[in-house]
Design a protein around this nucleic acid. Structure first.
Lengths: 212, 212, 212, 212
DNA sequence: TATGAATGAGATTTCATTCAT
DNA sequence: GATGAATGAAATCTCATTCAT
């Protein structure tokens, strides 16, 4: 049988593979360490036979890598959806920050993304390799921010002095700040609500024309 | 024998343990995944017997956790040193960005730090637990940034509207954005030099009083 | 459905079973180890469904055993054909040696035959059991050599001092020596052509009356 | 730890490895199929831990291949020993035939040798590759026959018309005939005793000067 | 004290066989 | 009848940890 590559569109994913992806997602959400999760734990949670995963995936690293790519795809789709509901750049940014905080699952996903980008484990390298493939480009969260920026520039919402390609770094960096702060908020005296508002404002100050 | 706790001052670390720490550092620097590094690989590189590590450490997680804490200690000391050579907040921030890029080993160390803060592996939890202990507080890189910030506020270099506790996250997230971009996005259109300048500028814009 | 027993005459073999037999033959010829060949590899090569073989065969061992019996049947038929074209014992022996070298497929088949007679794997025992059955006697290569010998004795071509039952082993062992030498000893100093001539001559010297 | 290559001299073989070799030998002697023998069966019989074999061998195929090479080494040494006790070519040949029949273990070993030379399994290919290495040349049974022949030619025991390099094939072929016949002797009317005598005589007739 | 050979629990992976379609 | 996705028992292999030397 043809193996899963992680490049499949959401509707192309076979039902059993979906069960696997969902099992991995649940395990991550429940705080398990992906690296030390057993294949048998995944299959048990997915309610399928242990051998079945090997019909679809080459090995354990592929299982995890493809599961993460699926989560990234879903995140991207979620953000696309959210952005399509807003018209103004500022609102879109805020909606993203809001969305990410609202759903703790997606928080995990975002942190996972950072984790993956900074690690050398077998599956992390694999995820990065797959993300670099042309086929996957359309599923990158980066794309959402890029489009958001293009629109913003076109409408004159974003400062003319800013290099368009930096906008994405600015947004990314703020999101990162937010995520880390929220994650570390036990030790932070300020609430996440207040912080979000502050971050949102400082991001807009940095990127947007004042009168907008 | 009393086991190593990771709270030891640099000069208290026994010579064999230092060999272990250095071996782990080399392995990380060479791109190995800490999680899947074998104890025997570490001891071979350290040039000591496999059983010896168990004279000093309880188990593998402790070996890795303490090695990382040692790296964090060294990073903190390095940053302290750098900051002590500069007087102005802006210069200090820039020196940190510069220092980190200059030394790829420290890049790895920084990313490793982030990785540890966002993962759930046995050793990551351990590192976090140990970092929360009072004894370790003095070795936290956060402290460097906090002191830098305190100084900056005192001297009026930093905007008054900014939440003091937020400054550290802002610096931290800029560093992270830079690291991830440089590390993961070889496909980046802009050079890392230019990106560093941009991030540095945007950070100062955000944090500092304009006339400074 | 009635399962295949391996005793079927060539024209009784169902078309799907023939596809299976041919697939196994190809795999052996291509240097695969029968023992470690997967059922799925056989069915894929045969171009049939994996479940289909279990309509015809009890289990994997039966698949392989019957495939080999089929090859033995074909070998026997081939040798019969060749012998029927020659009248003299010496010529028949030479023709067999020649035939076997000419067709590398049959070389493989001959070696496979030896392999099966000297191994203890499940399928080997099975092949031997089936070969001992009365129904299969007519398909044994041994029969060709026996008849060849009977004819030779009758015509006074073979030495009278020789044990008749030994003749077949003598022929067989020369063939085997030749096959093993050609197959395994690429480092042989003498060419296979010369070796064949030598073995042929020594066999005739041993078995035949000198003036013949 | 440095892995076993199969090229070790008998006295260099570590004690645990010797236990493994002996276990494999026992399993073969007891009629087990090497291919389907489990690693755990070997280690249990050897009385060592399952993981221990992987300290010495790369994988299962290496375990089996090296065990067989060890048997070949022992066979060669045994034959060398026997030959050193006889002075005349004819006696040496006879002693070899006798020795091989006397020890059923060595019969197994001889058939195993044929098996290995005619199969494509992972371990068979491995054995052949290792036998071709220069380091192993000294342990090949072929060497015993070659030396036997050199001596025989020097002493004028062997016919001058015979190519020296064929003598080994003649001996090998007779041994093979004998082994196959004995193995198949259930169906043979003549006893192995009588057959041996006959084979011995025919071999001497073929190779030796008549007056010797 | 230091060692590294030995261990075995437990992980990954394979693949013959089944059975719903 | 034919299929091939699904299974899970059983195999191979790993490696943290122990302990005799």
């Amino acid at each position: 049988m043809e193996k899963i590559t992680g490049m499949e569109a959401a509707h192309e994913v076979p039902p059993k593979v979906l069960l696997i992806y969902e099992a991995v997602e649940k395990l991550i959400a429940s705080g398990e360490d992906i690296n030390s999760v057993k294949v048998s734990t995944i299959t048990e949670l997915a309610g399928i036979g242990k051998g079945t995963v090997y019909d679809y995936f080459e090995n354990k690293d592929e299982i995890i890598a493809c599961s993460l790519l699926y989560q990234i795809k879903k995140l991207t789709e979620g953000l696309k959806e959210i952005c399509s509901e807003k018209e103004i750049f500022a609102e879109r940014v805020y909606a993203c920050l809001e969305e990410i905080q609202k759903q703790s699952d997606k928080q995990q996903c975002f942190l996972r993304y950072v984790h993956v980008m900074t690690a050398n484990s077998g599956y992390c390298q694999l995820v990065r390799d797959k993300m670099k493939q042309k086929e996957f480009e359309q599923y990158l969260p980066k794309r959402v921010f890029e489009e958001m920026t293009m629109d913003g520039i076109e409408r004159g919402e974003i400062k003319k002095t800013i290099l368009p390609e930096y906008v994405i770094y600015a947004i990314f960096s703020k999101l990162l700040t937010y995520m880390i702060s929220v994650n570390a908020c036990e030790t932070m005296r300020t609430g996440s609500e207040k912080l979000r508002t502050y971050l949102y404002q400082s991001l807009l100050d940095e990127l947007c024309e004042k009168n907008v």
